[in-house]
């Protein structure tokens, strides 16, 4: 079974068509994540991991890298579901 990081990497490359060099790359500094990308990302995270994110409680830092998105997913307790 693929890890949470791998699954998020796959969303970036297969759905958002964005090449992210490593899970630590700063997605904002590199322009890889903008408002349009975020909407698609949220939609796909919700689809794949089956949970709802409340945008009002989200912080930019939680989306800064694939690694930080993975910890957001894992902290919501559904990271291992598939």
């Amino acid at each position: 079974m693929s890890t949470c990081v791998e699954r998020i990497q796959a969303i970036f490359s297969q759905i958002l068509y964005r090449e992210v060099e490593s899970p630590q790359v700063d997605l904002f500094e590199t322009g890889l994540l903008d408002s349009m990308g975020l909407i698609e990302l949220l939609f796909n995270l919700e689809q794949q991991f089956g949970f709802q994110l409340d945008i009002a409680h989200l912080d930019l830092d939680q989306f800064r890298s694939i690694e930080s998105i993975a910890s957001l997913v894992e902290s919501s307790g559904v990271g291992q579901a598939s």
Binding site: F12, Q14, L16, Y17, R18, E19, G31, L32, D34
Partner: peptide, 20 residues
């Protein structure tokens, strides 16, 4: 591989011009 093409194109165009 769209993700590779997009990344190459990003060397030339600002991100808001990249096809989605």
């Amino acid at each position: 591989e769209p993700q590779v093409l997009r990344s190459r194109l990003s060397q030339r165009l600002p991100h808001y011009m990249l096809p989605s």
